[in-house]
Every structure is written in C-alpha cells, then in structure tokens.
Design a protein around this nucleic acid. Sequence first.
DNA 1: GCTAAAAATTAATCTAGTTCAAGAAATACA
DNA 2: TGTATTTCTTGAACTAGATTAATTTTTAGC
Lengths: 191, 191
Amino acid sequence: MLTSLRDHVLKFVKPSEKELQLLLDAVETEVISHKQYLIKEGQYCLHLYFIVQGCFRSYFIHTSGAEKVINFGIEDWWITDFDSLVHNRPSELHIQAAEDSIVLKISKQKLDLLLQESIIINQYFRMIHEKVRIADQRRIKFMYSLSGEELYHSFCEHNPKFVQRVPQYMLASYLGFTPEFLSKIRARKKK
Amino acid sequence: MLTSLRDHVLKFVKPSEKELQLLLDAVETEVISHKQYLIKEGQYCLHLYFIVQGCFRSYFIHTSGAEKVINFGIEDWWITDFDSLVHNRPSELHIQAAEDSIVLKISKQKLDLLLQESIIINQYFRMIHEKVRIADQRRIKFMYSLSGEELYHSFCEHNPKFVQRVPQYMLASYLGFTPEFLSKIRARKKK
DNA sequence: GCTAAAAATTAATCTAGTTCAAGAAATACA
DNA sequence: TGTATTTCTTGAACTAGATTAATTTTTAGC
C-alpha cells in the first residue's frame, strides 16, 4: 500500500529514509467502496487523500438539482477540498468513489506538523501544486478553445483508458455539457 | 518597491530577517509600460513576477485569431507561465501589461536555489499555490453554475474596482463570451 | 438467470450566445 | 484641438447545445 506513495514522493524529491518514514507513518490506509464518500457537502474536510487504487469524482449540486462534476482523481493523485481544509469551512463539494478504491489519508494536523519540520515535504507538496496548476491551466485553455464535440474527442484521445472507467454522464458533466449532447456526439462519430 | 513583497510574505510566514533578505536580494525591479509584454508565445519563460503596481492579462491566440484571456493579475499577485517555467518549454501564452506597471522579478535559477535552502520560502510558495488552487476551483464552479449574464454580474459584484481597470472586451473574453454579448447584457441592465 | 435500477439513446422543440457588418463613442496623442 | 485608433454598441440571421420526455440498453445484486 505504502509503496505507491513512497514511489510517488521519490519521483519529485530525494528525502532521507527517516524523512520519508515520517510521512509514511503519518498516513492511514482506508478502503472506500464504490459510491461511498470521502467528503460530503457541509462537512468540514479534515484530511488529504492519496489515491492508491481506484477513481473518485468531486462534484457539487447545482441550484437546478443537477450534479456538476468538477474533477476526477485516479491512482497517484492527491485529492481533497482545499478550500474546506485550508480555511476550516464547510465543504461545498462531494467527493465520491467512482469505483471500489483504496486511499492513504493524512490529517490536516499531522500534515501541518510535517510541513513545519521538513523542507523536503514542503518541496514535494509545492511541486504537486505546481503540477496541478499547470494541468488546470491547460484545462482552461482547452475549455476556451474547443467546442463540446472537440473537447470530447480530445479528452478521449488524451485519456483513452480513463474514458472506460466512468459513466458517460459524469464525463459529459466534467466537460461542461449534458449527457444527451454527448450521446449525439457519439452517434455522429459512428457514421 | 520591496516593501510590498516583504509585507506579502509576512502575511503567510514568519521568516528571520536574514531569510527574508535572501528573497528580497534575489529580486529585480522592472518597469513595464502599458501593452508591453512579460512573455510572448514561443519564448522560454525564465522568471517569476510579483506585481507591485499595475495589471496584467495572460492570453493566447485561438486558431480563429481571437485573443482568449485566461487570467488577470493585479497588485500582490505572482504571475508567470508555470508550464514554460517548470518544464523549460516555449510558452503558449502572452502576458501583457494592461496598465503601466511595476514588477519584481526573480529568475528560475535563483528561485530554485532559494527553494533548495529555505523551508520558509518553500512554505510561502506552497501556500501561494494553495491559495490559487482554491481560487481556480471557485472560478470553475462559477463557470459551471452561472449563465453568461450571471457570471458578469457576479464578477462585477465581487470585483467592483477591478472592472473599471480593463476594457470590456478583455473581461468578456475572460468570462468566456464575446464583447457583443457583453454589450447586450449591459444594455438589458439599463432598462 | 431474473429483476430492478442505473445509464444511454433518440427526436422534437427551444434558447443563450455567436457571427457579421456597420456605426457611434471614447481615448490617445500629435 | 483635431484626427486616428481603439473600444463599445446595435440589430438581424444563425447555431451549438439545452430541455423534455419517452424508449432502449446495460449493469448489479439476489
């Protein structure tokens, strides 16, 4: 279980064995079955989660009642509601398993202690944030550049394996349109 | 000039005088007049910029020829193209002054050295990244929740001073629609 | 293997926002 | 103070994608 986190850290920084162990000791394994929640709207988010196995989506409920998916997470991603975690406020998101999953979780308290002590762990999380910001910027660029149809094809091309793992209606929501429209796109393609 | 960066750092972390000075010594002041560029598409971005005074927009050129604004930056924001900076690849963005401006710039080289040495500076930038990620998440939530008209009114409400500082067509692009449509929204409101 | 629930499809109608084109206002700067 | 450039507005025709509702297909659990 822990080796996947160990390996991930080592892709970014070179901690001493001792320093690495500090992080691994701070973390707890949790099994989350399909459709269970890491966080629900209104709860105070108190943990940061590392996905060892499985898939999650974060979404919120629109005033219309529709679920709007704002992100997916799979193996080797950290996931949480930072707004809730950092500012100690009730979450506006649901984070739900889209498959049977396994996560490593670290509490805000323990993480804050590590971040006060360890330069390496700061570097690691700083680099993770950089990476996500770069990915988010690309995503925004795509959303501004492409039509719905183009977005879908581009997404399938860049994430061929992932597309199989979640239902179409979640993907449609993530890409910013309705499942009906996604059906239409797929129908067009076949001809 | 430097006091605005000093003050900003102190809002997040408590460095020693010496540590703070390391950052302030690494930084150079630059005056950028209206419509000048910090970065142009195709260039390798080599600096991180802290805005002391003024306003910038980052945008790219769509295949249609249209300029798509993906972000604004004002006083006390760090701005750069992280994708280019971190991965040493040509930038896909332009970052242009929308007003006569003053920035503090730090080279990637110097920054990397500081980040190897100083836990406090790592913490500072890690916290900046967290803050931006939270803001970006809110932005995505808004974009998924609101109609164009609602987006505009919400933006004006939350950033009343800023709205005055940039031309309408930039704001329209940032919000994801055309200047013509923004005109229509404004016309509706008057009645 | 059967049944209920979840997910995907289809088609008709509707609308928010685009496009194009032309003119009016505002701003910069000589 | 006048002229050129930039920005903003208006209107008519158009389209990508939404909505609604009914039907089919797939999946999961017993």
